[in-house]
């Protein structure tokens, strides 16, 4: 801004300001209206969850879910990380029934536990659970100690080992912090389904509010038999599986 503002300039600027305010105010009213749902903090009246039917889901579809997640959130193209260092938000897991030898493939990501051990152990409160059950890492606070990675029974978390650039606009990621499946929280807050769910063209994977009696996921869970992986740990996971 120019430092020597004479009276006439001042009047010019301030009248321009008044016009500006009017325009901006109407602009703001419009955007606020459009973004209505996101103005208020999320509450515990909802609990987001996912139901994965392993009988219906094909291996190709599981691979598709993994790449949809990579595409959406921008992980998987780390060049300097090797082997176990590579971030993995979701992966294809094969489980075998010891008695029959039957092999089942399933996608495994953060299970969004109601009682998350990763949150219990975090010394900085970076690992946190939102009111609506989505478990996240607040990378602003994460010191990279990786306690949460050790505490998670599902090996769902990864540590970023290298400098990153060109991140997704909606998904900040960086060296020295821990990350994991966010349930595509940026999409969920927008009323959309997570990317992996959207990539499957059948009802093999459904997403929704576990508490809402009208939701597909709530109704299906009441009908079909489903399981939580390592239910013995009593973590009450948000991600459920049927067919295992």
């Amino acid at each position: 801004m120019s430092k020597t503002l004479n009276r006439r300039d001042f009047i010019k600027t301030s009248s321009a300001t008044t016009v500006g305010v009017a325009t901006i105010v109407s602009g703001i009213t419009l955007t606020t209206f459009a973004a209505n749902a996101n103005e208020n903090p999320v509450t515990n009246e909802k609990r987001w969850g996912m139901l994965i039917d392993t009988n219906k889901l094909t291996e190709v579809e599981i691979d598709g879910m993994v790449s949809a997640c990579q595409q959406e959130n921008g992980w998987g193209s780390e060049v300097h990380s090797t082997g176990d260092q590579k971030p993995t938000w979701v992966r294809k897991l094969k489980v075998q029934d010891k008695a029959t030898g039957k092999i089942t493939s399933l996608p495994l990501m953060c299970q969004h536990c109601e009682e998350p051990p990763c949150v219990d152990v975090c010394p900085t409160n970076a690992s946190m659970k939102r009111e609506d059950g989505i478990v996240l890492v607040d990378k602003h606070l994460c010191i990279g100690c990786r306690y949460c990675m050790m505490a998670c029974p599902y090996d769902a978390r990864s540590f970023v080992h290298e400098d990153l650039t060109d991140q997704r606009e909606h998904m900040p990621r960086g060296k020295g912090t821990v990350e994991s499946c966010t349930l595509c929280v940026h999409k969920v807050d927008n009323g959309e389904s997570p990317a992996c769910v959207a990539s499957v063209n059948s009802d093999a994977v459904i997403f929704g509010d576990l508490y809402d009696p009208k939701s597909n996921i709530n109704q299906t869970l009441k009908k079909v038999q489903s399981a939580q992986i390592r239910a013995d740990l009593d973590l009450n996971t948000g991600v459920r599986y049927s067919g295992i």
Binding site: A35, E39, P41, M128, R130, H140, H186
Partner: peptide
Amino acid sequence: RDKTLREGVRTK
């Protein structure tokens, strides 16, 4: 950042 990350408030 706290509002958005922790509470899901996504205003501009």
